[in-house]
Design a protein around this nucleic acid. Structure first.
Lengths: 167, 167, 167, 167
DNA sequence: TTTT
DNA sequence: TTTT
C-alpha cells in the first residue's frame, strides 16, 4: 500500500520454554508463547479479576532467535516488538484455520529480557551505574557485535521444521 | 501475571466502510478492516513486490466508535492503537475457530484520522458534527468534551448485534 | 494540527526515589528520573561499552501518580508511556533554558511496574496462572476500581509545589 | 542497566524543509522539525483550543536520511520512530544548554511518509528515483534493495557539518 | 477489501 | 515553523 505501520509491543511472560526449529542453513526459528494479563476489581462485587491473553510469537530474526534460545525459558519476562501476521492452514480434517502471530522478521523486531534472576545483587545506583553488563540487555539484533555462536540448546525444546504444527 | 503490556499500533487504510452494531443502550460497536502493506524489490529479479496484511479492529470505546462511524469510510487512512485479543467461536459445522482482533476497550485505545481529503460529497460542517470534532483530529476519547449525540450513520453499514458473524 | 501522535515508550529503572509534590486539591504530581541504557561491543577493541540515557518523567495522571508514589523507589523497573513536552524556563541568572520531559497527563499515559521484589516465590505456570495479584499490575489509571487512598509516602520524597525546580 | 527500551513514536508534519548535512563519506545526516498538536474544547468557555509541540529529529540512518532528503518537505506528514537522546552543549556565552532530540541511529528507527499529495511541481518518476521507492512507502532502511545513490538534494537545505549549530 |  |  504505502505509508503503513504494523507493530505489536508486548511485555509478558513465557508460558513454556522456547521451541526452536532450525532452517537447513542452521538458523534458528524460535516460537514463544507469551502471556499478558490484566487485573481489575469488579465494580459490583469488588472482587479481584484477572484475564490472561496468550500470544504466539515467531522469531525469524537470527540474532534475536539465538538470544531467545539461549536465555529465555518458561517464566521469563520479555519485551517483544514485532508485526502481526495471519496465516491460513488446514487441520487434519481439511478444515481451514487462521492463526495470527507476532512475527520478528529477519533483521527486524526487538527482544529485550526483563528479568534478571541470575547473577548477584543487581545493584543499582545513579552514581555508579557503569559497568554492569548481564542478561537483560537490548538485543536489537542489528549490530554485528551481537552475533555469537549457536548455543547448545539449554532449556529449549528442539524440533525439526518438518514437524511444524501450525498452532 | 503482573506487569504486562499488550499493545498494537497500526497505520493503514480501511478496506471497506466501518460496520456498526449497536448495544441495547445505543452505544456503537464498530468493526474495521484495515490493510497494512510492505513493498520491496526482489533481490533476484529486481521485481517490485507487495504483501498486504488485513487486520480486524473492534471498537468498544464509545467516543472513538462514534468518530469511526461518523468520519471513516472505505479508503480512509488511520492510526489505531489497541490490544490483541483472541476469541474462540464455532462455525456452522460446529468447528472450533480462533479469531485474533485488535480491540479498543471502553475508555481505552486511540484512533487518529490521517487523511484530509476534504472535498467531495462529504461536506464537513461544524454545526452538524457537534461543533467539536473535525476529521484529522486526535480523538483520544477521554475528554468529556468529545461526547456527542449518535450520528445518523453516514457511509457506515449498520447491522444488529444479533447478526454478529464472528469473522 | 490534526492527525498527530506524540508517544514515548520507556522501559527503564528509577535512578532515585520518586519526587512527589502535591496540588492544592491533594492530587500528587510525581517526578521520576528513569535510566535506559544500551550496551554493545566495540567493533575495534571488542570492548564492552554502555551508554545510559536519563529521562525526566512527570505524572499528572492522578491514579498513576498514586501508584508511583506508593510502589516505586530507586532501582524499580517500569514501563512508562507518555508524551514529549518541552518547556522553557529561566535559571537564576535569567538564562533561557529548555527542558524536555515525558508527561503523563490527567487520564492519560501508562505505568506498569516490571519488578516484583516483594512477596513470595513469584511462581509462574501456564496451567495455574490464576490468582496471583500483586505489585506489577497494569495501572492504566482509567478504571475507577483502581483508585485507592493516598498513601503515607513510603520511600518517596515529598516537596511542596512552591519549591518547584525546573530540572 | 539491562533490559531497557527507549522509543519515541511521532506522527506529525514538518515545519520546514529537511536540513541536510553531510559526513565526510557522503552519508547524509538529516534534521527535521516536526509538529504534533492536540486540540480540545475548553470546558468552561466551549472555545476551541490547540497546543502544538515541536520536536527535533536527527536521522543518522543512511537509508532513511536519503528518503527524508529526497521526499520530505515543509508540510509533509510522517510517521517517525526513534529514540530519545539529550545532549549538552554550550552557547556562545559559554552557558550550558541541554537539547533533547529524537534520534534515528544507523540501521535503526523508522520513517514512513503519510501524505500522498502527488500533484504539483513535485513530479514523481520511478526512473529518477532509482526505481524502488515511491512516496508513502515504508522505508525501513534495512533491506539491501532499498539502497540507492545519493540524490541531488531536491527541496532540502544543505549545510556543511562544520556549521553545526546545536539547536 | 485498502493504498501507491 | 507545520497542520486543521
Amino acid at each position: 500500500m504505502a505509508g503503513s505501520v504494523n507493530k505489536v509491543i508486548l511485555v509478558g511472560n513465557l508460558g513454556r520454554d522456547p521451541e526452536v526449529r532450525r532452517l537447513s542453513n542452521g538458523e534458528p526459528v524460535v516460537n514463544l508463547r507469551i502471556a499478558t494479563s490484566e487485573t481489575w476489581k469488579d465494580k459490583g462485587t469488588g472482587e479481584r479479576k484477572e484475564k490472561t491473553e496468550w500470544h504466539s510469537v515467531v522469531i525469524f530474526n537470527e540474532n534475536l532467535g539465538r538470544v531467545a534460545e539461549q536465555y529465555l525459558k518458561k517464566g521469563s519476562k520479555v519485551y517483544i516488538e514485532g508485526q502481526l501476521q495471519t496465516r491460513k492452514w488446514q487441520d487434519q480434517q481439511g478444515q481451514e484455520k487462521y492463526t495470527t502471530e507476532i512475527v520478528l522478521q529477519r533483521f527486524r523486531g526487538e527482544l529485550t529480557i526483563l528479568d534478571s534472576r541470575q547473577g548477584g545483587g543487581e545493584q543499582f545506583d545513579e552514581e555508579h551505574s557503569g559497568g554492569s553488563i548481564q542478561r537483560g540487555g537490548d538485543f536489537g539484533g542489528r549490530a554485528p557485535a551481537e552475533r555469537r555462536p549457536a548455543p547448545a540448546g539449554g532449556s529449549s525444546r528442539h524440533t525439526d521444521l518438518d514437524d511444524d504444527i501450525p498452532f
